[in-house]
């Protein structure tokens, strides 16, 4: 029975970071720690570590919602192959 019950797991669809075309690049110096990007990341791929945000690139799909919502322009979407 136990083997038939799914357990909470990151990456139920694998390393979804591979889906990215654009990568969110975060500039800590421009950030005011408002946490809006953390709240609105649909993937839940942003963590708050010691009050600062940290993006989990293993799973971030590169949707760009975080960059759009950031009033401080502290997140920039950059094409993966340009990195």
């Amino acid at each position: 029975m136990e083997c038939m019950i799914a357990k909470p797991s990151k990456g139920s669809a694998g390393k979804t970071g591979l889906w990215r075309t654009f990568k969110p690049i975060y500039d800590e110096n421009k950030c005011n720690n408002c946490l809006l990007c953390w709240l609105y990341c649909p993937e839940n791929a942003i963590d708050v570590v010691d009050g600062k945000i940290s993006i989990d690139y293993d799973y971030c799909k590169g949707c760009g919602v975080c960059a759009k919502i950031c009033a401080k322009k502290a997140i920039e979407m950059v094409r993966e192959e340009e990195l």
Binding site: K10, G11, S12, T16, P42, E43, N44, D58, Y59, G62
Partner: peptide, 8 residues
């Protein structure tokens, strides 16, 4: 949890 099948 991150890494699910939802679209971007």
């Amino acid at each position: 949890l991150p890494g699910n099948t939802s679209c971007q």
